[in-house]
Simulated assay, not measured.
Amino acid sequence: MDPSTTLTALHEFCTERLGPELAHHFMKMARPGFDLVVAAPEEAAGDSRFGGMAMLEPGTPWPTCDGFPLSLLAVLDTDALPREWLGDLIPAGTGLLNFFFLDTGSEQCHEAAFEVAGKRPAFCTAPELAAVIAARSSHAVPAAPPARASVFAPVPWAASPGFAFPNQSFDLVLPDDLGPEAMEMRDTIMRGLYLEHDFPDWEQRPGALTAADIAFAWPVLSNSPPLPDGKELHQFQHLLQISGPYEWGLGADGGDMHWTIPTEALRTGDFSRAIPTPDYA
């Protein structure tokens, strides 16, 4: 289905369960995004994948922190995603988004990476430990990683569009003036619980995003995202969630990797302002 048809069906689904007034406000939280599912190369969304080689424009420097190279974790080919689902979320022609992070979680990681990360008060959440670099599809070429950077086997992704909602009380962006019914929803339905606990058929909703790896939309979180002081989640847009079983992992006990960006920076294509928001299990 196209996004307009999907939104209409989703609104009807929510209205049946929440009533028309609350469903109207609840639907304001719906954000478009894409399930990223492991696929054969011929089924992939362009060059979208976990791992592999970075795709950069000639002359683009490889991102580093204190002179230590970050590692390429994923590439998202936005030109291969249905434009009608992206709307004005990102500028047309954004091309390939390369997602980098300091590797301290794989068997390949260099021992010096821990020293680099350890210098930061917030281990693994400092902005300089990650980077998102855009490259125009017509100009991008494979970039050889420098020494000490980890290189992971490529895993192609197919992309399926849909809509997501915040899944935890700290994600909730309902305003405070919607009346007692909305406040009851905030204090009970959304009280640290996943929506499917309250809606038994929640995963059957139209346009549901249920994959482990997700582009845009809302992330699936276990803990509050580590945003800069004084910033609220509604001022930011989720870029990418990596949660699948790959060569790389987040922390000894697992976790999901996220990149987040101020919404106004995303709409203008300023990916230099993207930050890491890892979610440790």
Rank of each mutant, 00 (worst) to 15 (best):
S4F: 09
T5D: 03
L7N: 12
T8R: 00
A9M: 05
H11T: 15
H11C: 11
F13K: 00
L18F: 01
P20K: 05
H25R: 13
F26C: 07
V37G: 03
P41V: 13
E42P: 08
D47K: 13
S48R: 05
E57C: 15
E57G: 09
T60M: 11
T60Q: 10
P61M: 05
C65T: 14
P69K: 11
L70T: 05
S71I: 01
A74Q: 02
A80C: 11
G87R: 13
P91M: 01
T94D: 08
F99A: 02
F100A: 00
D103A: 01
A117M: 13
A122I: 01
A135I: 10
A140V: 01
P145R: 03
P145N: 00
A149P: 07
F163I: 13
N167C: 15
Q168E: 06
L174I: 10
L178W: 07
R191V: 03
L193W: 15
D198R: 13
T210P: 10
V220C: 06
P225H: 00
Q241G: 06
Q241R: 02
I242E: 03
S243Q: 10
G255W: 02
D256S: 15
H258F: 12
H258W: 07
I261K: 03
F271H: 00
P276R: 04
P278V: 07
A281G: 02
